[in-house]
Measured scan of single mutants.
Amino acid sequence: QIFVKTLTGKTITLEVEPSDTIENVKAKIQDKEGIPPDQQRLIFAGKQLEDGRTLSDYNIQKESTLHLVL
């Protein structure tokens, strides 16, 4: 699982696999929060994550925290 922290300070927990794409993660966030993926920007280690890449591409491991910017 990974954590996604929103600007409001809320933390969302997501069940993911390293092979999941960023697009996939955004879809999971939409399921939980109702935020359309095209409004979501995910930041990890100061980098904006691209939809077509996977979590493992960015070396995002379990218990990692991503930041969600709208």
Rank of each mutant, 00 (worst) to 15 (best):
I2V: 06
I2E: 01
I2M: 05
I2C: 02
F3C: 06
V4P: 01
V4F: 03
K5N: 06
K5A: 07
K5L: 14
K5S: 09
K5C: 14
T6S: 07
T6V: 10
T6C: 13
L7F: 13
T8L: 10
T8M: 11
T8W: 11
T8S: 13
G9T: 03
G9A: 04
G9N: 06
G9M: 04
K10I: 10
K10M: 10
K10H: 13
K10F: 09
T11Y: 10
T11A: 05
T11E: 06
I12W: 05
I12G: 00
T13Y: 08
L14S: 01
L14G: 00
L14I: 13
L14H: 00
E15M: 15
E15W: 12
V16N: 02
V16K: 01
V16E: 00
E17H: 10
P18Y: 11
P18R: 04
P18Q: 09
P18W: 13
S19E: 11
S19D: 12
S19H: 12
S19K: 08
S19C: 14
D20K: 02
D20T: 09
D20R: 02
D20W: 09
T21N: 04
T21C: 05
T21R: 07
I22V: 10
I22G: 02
I22C: 03
I22E: 00
E23C: 14
E23W: 15
E23K: 12
N24G: 09
N24H: 10
N24S: 14
N24M: 15
V25F: 03
K26S: 01
K26R: 05
K26V: 02
A27Y: 13
A27Q: 13
A27P: 00
K28S: 04
K28D: 02
I29G: 00
Q30V: 04
Q30E: 10
D31C: 14
D31T: 10
K32A: 13
K32P: 02
K32Y: 08
K32L: 11
K32N: 05
G34V: 02
G34L: 04
G34T: 03
I35W: 12
I35S: 04
I35H: 10
I35E: 02
I35P: 04
I35G: 02
P36M: 06
P36S: 08
P37C: 11
P37Y: 11
P37S: 12
D38L: 11
D38H: 15
D38A: 15
Q39A: 08
Q39K: 11
Q39N: 11
Q40C: 08
R41W: 08
R41F: 12
R41G: 06
R41N: 11
R41D: 07
R41Q: 14
L42Y: 03
I43V: 09
F44I: 04
F44A: 03
F44E: 02
A45S: 08
A45D: 14
A45W: 08
A45E: 14
G46H: 06
G46P: 01
K47P: 02
K47A: 11
Q48H: 13
Q48A: 11
L49C: 05
E50F: 06
E50P: 03
E50D: 09
E50V: 08
D51K: 04
D51G: 07
D51V: 06
D51Q: 05
G52E: 10
G52L: 08
G52R: 09
R53E: 04
T54M: 10
T54R: 12
L55G: 01
L55H: 00
L55N: 00
L55V: 08
L55T: 02
S56W: 08
D57M: 05
Y58T: 02
Y58P: 00
Y58S: 03
Y58I: 03
Y58M: 04
N59E: 08
N59Q: 09
I60F: 03
Q61Y: 09
Q61E: 11
Q61S: 11
Q61K: 12
K62I: 13
K62Q: 15
K62S: 15
K62A: 15
E63T: 07
E63Y: 11
E63W: 09
E63V: 03
S64L: 04
S64K: 04
T65S: 05
T65A: 04
L66I: 12
L66K: 01
H67D: 10
L68Y: 02
L68C: 03
L68T: 02
V69I: 12
V69C: 14
V69E: 12
L70I: 13
L70Y: 10
